Each structure stands twice: as structure tokens, then as C-alpha cells.
Amino acid sequence: MTSNETRWDQFVEEVANEGTVWTIEKSGEYVTSNNRFGTKCFPWWSSRARVLKQLETVPAYSGYQQIGFEWHVFLEEWVPHLRRARCLLGINYASHENVGFDLPIQEVIEAVSQTRV
């Protein structure tokens, strides 16, 4: 299993068990980036510790802060906007290169929903 696959499995398990997803913001602005195919991606992490580590690792994230959302808030408030923006979800990015999976929203929702306890 690759480290990306491990991070994906951890994302699903942690979000399903903890019920929270994390992203970063600075003054009400959120980070997006384009992947190598030019598709807009919005990064999400499955734990506060993961996002804090990434904030320390990526110089471009200087000044950003972590912010968590309960899973139901993510589904109700974030998903409609992310779908309209045609974003993929960047899952548990790691290292200074922000390596991770960029996945369709529905795939992430289904995986977490099937794993929820």
C-alpha cells in the first residue's frame, strides 16, 4: 500500500469515527490549488494534528489557521459550493509538496458514509 493509499484509508476512518473534517483559512479566505491536470482542488484533512503539521511544513501556508467542521456541516454547507465550483477534494495532503489524493466529492462522501459507526 502506498503512502497516499494509507492517507486515504486514514482519512476515511478518522472522519467516520471523529465526525470532523479540517481545512485552512486566513482572514476568511480558503486555499485551493490546481492539480497537474488543471482541476481545482480544495484540501481537507481528517485530524487537527494532520492539518497543524501541514501548516508547519508548507511555507505558502504561512499565516493560515486550521478550522474544523462537523461532517454534517461539511455535507450541508460546503458540498453544494464545492460541487458548483467543480472542485476535487484534496485528501490529507502531506509533505512540503502537498502530496495526496484528489478525489471527486461523491467518492469521499460514500466512503465516509459506509464507514461511519
Rank of each mutant, 00 (worst) to 15 (best):
Met1Trp: 07
Met1Gly: 15
Thr2Ser: 15
Ser3Ile: 10
Asn4Asp: 12
Trp8Ile: 12
Asp9Ser: 12
Asp9Cys: 04
Phe11Pro: 06
Phe11Glu: 05
Val12Ser: 02
Glu18Gln: 15
Glu18Met: 06
Thr20Asp: 03
Ile24Lys: 02
Lys26Pro: 02
Gly28Leu: 11
Glu29Ala: 12
Glu29Cys: 01
Ser33Asp: 05
Arg36Cys: 07
Phe37Gln: 14
Phe37Ser: 13
Thr39Pro: 00
Lys40Tyr: 03
Lys40Arg: 14
Cys41Ser: 13
Phe42Asn: 03
Pro43Ser: 05
Trp44Phe: 15
Ser46Val: 00
Arg48Ile: 01
Ala49Pro: 01
Leu52Asp: 15
Leu52Val: 05
Leu52Ser: 08
Leu52Tyr: 07
Glu56Ile: 00
Glu56Pro: 01
Thr57Leu: 11
Pro59Asp: 10
Ala60Arg: 13
Ala60Met: 10
Tyr61Cys: 00
Tyr61Gln: 02
Ser62Leu: 11
Gly63Gln: 09
Gly63Val: 07
Tyr64Asn: 11
Tyr64Val: 02
Gln65Arg: 13
Gln66Thr: 01
Gln66Ala: 14
Ile67Ser: 08
Gly68Trp: 08
Phe69Ala: 12
Trp71Asp: 10
Trp71Thr: 05
His72Phe: 04
His72Tyr: 06
Val73Met: 06
Val73Asn: 08
Phe74Lys: 09
Phe74Thr: 05
Phe74Ile: 04
Phe74Trp: 11
Glu77His: 10
Glu77Leu: 04
Glu77Asn: 12
Trp78Cys: 09
Trp78Lys: 04
Val79Met: 09
Pro80Thr: 00
His81Pro: 00
Leu82Glu: 08
Arg83Lys: 15
Arg86Cys: 05
Arg86Thr: 01
Leu89Ala: 09
Gly90Glu: 03
Ile91Pro: 09
Ile91Ala: 08
Asn92Lys: 09
Tyr93Met: 15
Ser95Pro: 02
Ser95Cys: 04
His96Trp: 08
His96Thr: 11
His96Val: 13
Phe101Lys: 03
Pro104Ser: 02
Ile105Thr: 07
Gln106Asp: 15
Ile109Met: 14
Ile109Ser: 01
Glu110Val: 13
Ser113Tyr: 04
Thr115Tyr: 07
Thr115Met: 10
Arg116Thr: 13
Arg116Trp: 04
Val117Asn: 03
